[in-house]
């Protein structure tokens, strides 16, 4: 069952001069797939990922997820879609520094409003347990180490049980040991919960362990 399909995606940057970053990119991703996006620096991986994330709407082509056509939707509709169906883990473990670990994880779920605050808190503890961070739940998020923050970010990405979790070099700032922890969490999510994972990575070991690798070069997919 496919959960994502991108067809004929083209993207241009106009600064400093007109330049085509993505050239006719088409591919599909199946449910529960653990996929990594690799390629030389500057080949357009991040650009593609942010289009897939629905945050970048300035592209040509058609993007579908969960059987829903996302191209052409308004920003607010896309925000609602992200909230429910997508989770993100970024290279820099972006957490809200003034909030506690628990609050950071809870916020997207409170926004979704599917569960009561009490249930959301329970679920947040579950997700934190999954990444082995439940012991730090009440700490201010700015007081954690990089690897700990990255795990909290993963728990946050998982809170609404999204169909797809995306990461732009989620292990880029982590050491070998922490990278392995993150990798194992992703693998578990993909294979046990059947959630789809799409990550951009430069780490060959990380990529090797994935179900599928898409390799890009100069704005095109060269191997998938």
């Amino acid at each position: 069952m496919k959960v994502l399909s991108a067809s004929h995606i083209n993207k241009y940057f106009y600064e400093p001069e007109k330049f085509q970053v993505l050239k006719n990119i088409s591919f599909e991703v199946r449910k529960g797939e653990f996929l990594s996006l690799v390629g030389k620096s500057g080949c357009g991986k991040s650009t593609l990922l942010y289009i897939l994330s629905t945050m970048d709407t300035d592209y040509e082509g058609i993007l579908e997820m969960n059987g829903e056509k996302l191209t052409g939707k308004t920003q607010d509709q896309l925000a609602a879609f992200r909230n429910e169906h997508l989770g993100f883990v970024f290279q820099f473990h972006f957490l809200l520094p003034e909030f506690t670990v628990l609050q950071n994880v809870m916020l997207p779920a409170l926004k979704l409003g599917k569960y009561s605050a009490k249930e959301v808190e329970e679920r947040a503890y579950q997700k934190l347990k999954l990444v082995d961070m439940d012991g730090h739940a009440l700490k201010q998020s700015s007081k954690l180490s990089g690897g700990q923050q990255q795990r909290v970010a993963i728990a946050r990405a998982l809170i609404n049980d999204p169909t797809i979790i995306m990461g732009d070099e989620p292990t880029g700032n982590l050491d070998k040991k922490n990278s392995e922890i993150v990798f194992n969490i992703f693998k578990q999510i993909a294979h046990e919960n059947h959630q789809t994972i799409i990550t951009v990575t430069h780490d060959p070991d990380f990529a090797k362990g994935c179900d599928r690798i898409i390799e890009m070069s100069d704005g095109q997919i060269i191997k998938s």
């Binding site: 925000a79 609602a80 992200r82 993100f88 997207p108």
Partner: peptide
């Protein structure tokens, strides 16, 4: 923070 909120589904 605003970028994170938007990424996690907060609307304008």
């Amino acid at each position: 923070d605003i970028a994170i909120l938007k990424a996690t589904g907060f609307a304008g």
